[in-house]
Design a protein around this nucleic acid. Structure first.
Lengths: 351, 351
DNA sequence: CCATGACTTGTTAGCGCTAACATGTGCGGG
DNA sequence: CCCGCACATGTTAGCGCTAACAAGTCATGG
């Protein structure tokens, strides 16, 4: 009889199944399934046991089987626009990692024009995605948000400026981060400042400036020693803003650009003007995208835990899908920690 | 009894199944399966019957069920190192797209140290991946390749320098691309050239230089008007090489850097030296990574169809998995088309 | 006229997972 | 001291499809 069982084996790869995990944890497969799906009715103790077994066996649920068995929220749409280059790749790595852990499937879709967002969204929803992840800057687009709301889709906004009562969000504290970064500049002895704003459409732009301003006010820096220029988060716009900041007699000794691309542009212009960075002018950015470490001098900036946020976004959207289905509870608002990254582009103020 | 059957129904959507088709055609489900899979052993008459039933019911096989039942090639490991920033995100977008189309699952894994590649690989294979995709630069690492070969894993190398008799590859014609790009510079009237080589470990470095040299030779540019400096594909190495090229009396009027990062560094240094790009010196890169469009002036470079290559990689690795299982045929070598991207960093030679 | 094999079709038992139901537990109230 | 109830976990029976085997059917040739 067991000879027969042997004979009829069909498993080709020896990857762990839910049964293997169950055996190792000493529970039934069903309990493992419950843990994977984050269902409430599992004792904390059991859950820990199962999770350890999962880790040990390096188990990942088989999405085909899940979808066959006919339940799990399964397909997640990731609608992206054109986030600053390094962002997307780190985001994708995090999101994919988590999606393979949970056995969900990610469908990515580019959505360049906000006007086309509606159509893209409709198509995505029709092909059967159960929920959406909206990384910046789409999560700020009113068109997109209205569209999502109208469709009644489960969605998670990643790194929008503000919390929203009817959508789950994952954010960092932009204002606090900008505050800390400005304090770093103050501690280096800077007295005259420049600030390059981000795109006025994005709430984070204002928040970063608020943090900057609050820190300066707290340090008693007079208004006339602070110049603010408008930028739009692009390299080019940073270049133009930097020109207005640096081509003056009494130029700032420290410039805070609202993102890394604009900070890189500022550094580039400074070099072209024969200025040393950070000897003559200190420059800081925001986001810690790949450009930050890859230019010279490497940028002092603020790091967002992008991969972790992406992972959280996948979990949160699954939660949202269930919430939508059950019609219960409130969307959650998650806040992630940021980190100050001190590199070479900011130094002591020139004497 | 049939009350019970009714009670335990789980079918959510009412789309036709293989059983419905079988019933309608008056055959067994297995026969339908045979028709779907184009197996030879079905009588022409039966086949027609089944096909009609399929058409009438508008039946489409459920891919999840197929992959579950068929022990189909299923999990694909994507081992990445640290490819230049924009590359990974575009690659992932393409790969994910195709994997969701084919119903395969992608497991991504970072592998920073080539020395650790063995362990990472072993773990990946143990967790049941059926095949591997190796984007650059891992596809050039002897350690990794040896490891893959030893494990006997199905694998696809993306954008390695050379074809390999025992591994499927997807490439572009680096030499031809470099040749074309150099011809573009020649057409602009340049006479004195600089070249910044890529990392000596990667075969593409040599190929790009070969294309460059061939074009110059064909144009009759004398040896002494060509200076070659070693770089390593990094911004920093580009900066150092550019210094050696530009800090001389008779500097080149056109510089070909073997990738965009080094070209960007060269442009940065040129600015710092007070040179206009492309007025005083033209600069071209290679790869068309995001940095190329995001610096000023935007780089003239060569674009690889990264997303398309990633898509092809997924298809090819599935093919490889089948090939390994059957032990037949040869690994395929695919060549993708490249495109010359003319932007602002190369202009007419100064008079 | 039956053994032999080529050809065609059917049967059985899963793939890995989860919905729905069933079965333990432990607890407080009657 | 038993009932009922909440909670935690286990059982059973599939989801739709196909690998492996079994069982026809029919034409040969001895």
């Amino acid at each position: 009889m067991n000879e027969r069982t042997e004979r009829t084996r069909r498993r080709s790869s020896q990857s762990a199944t839910i049964r293997d995990v169950a055996a190792r944890a000493g529970v039934s497969p069903m309990t493992v399934s419950r843990v994977i799906n984050r269902e409430a009715t599992v004792k904390e103790e059991t859950r820990a046991l199962v999770e350890q077994a999962i880790a040990e066996l390096n188990y990942a649920p088989n999405p085909a089987a899940r979808s066959l068995a006919g339940s799990a929220p399964f397909r997640i749409g990731l609608l992206y626009d054109n986030p600053s280059t390094g962002y997307l790749s780190e985001f994708l790595v995090g999101a994919l990692d988590e999606s393979s852990r949970t056995g969900s499937q990610i469908v990515i879709e580019k959505c360049a024009e906000p006007e086309l967002a509606g159509a893209t969204l409709a198509r995505l929803l029709k092909t059967g995605v159960d929920g959406l992840i909206l990384p910046p800057p789409l999560c700020e687009s009113q068109t997109v948000l209205a569209e999502v709301k109208a469709a009644g889709a489960a969605a998670v906004a990643v790194a929008p400026g503000t919390a929203s009562s009817d959508m789950a969000t994952i954010r960092i504290d932009n204002e606090a981060a900008a505050f800390e970064l400005t304090q770093h500049l103050l501690a280096l002895g800077h007295k005259r400042f420049g600030f390059i704003k981000g795109h006025p459409n994005q709430t984070v732009s204002q928040q970063r400036m608020d943090g900057f301003m609050t820190a300066l006010k707290a340090a008693g820096i007079p208004q006339e020693d602070v110049r603010v220029e408008q930028g739009y988060f692009t390299y080019r716009s940073g270049l133009e803003a930097a020109e207005r900041l640096l081509n003056v007699k009494e130029r700032p000794t420290a410039i805070f650009a609202a993102n890394d691309d604009m900070a890189a542009a500022t550094a580039g212009l400074a070099h072209r003007l024969g200025l040393d960075v950070p000897g003559d002018v200190s420059i800081v950015g925001f986001d810690d995208t790949s450009i930050a470490a890859n230019i010279w001098p490497a940028l002092t900036t603020v790091h967002q835990p992008i991969a972790a946020m992406a992972r959280a976004a996948v979990d949160l959207v699954l939660e949202e899908i269930r919430r939508h289905r059950d019609g219960t509870g409130e969307p959650r608002q998650l806040m992630h920690p940021h980190t100050l990254i001190v590199r070479d582009s900011a130094g002591p103020a020139p004497t």
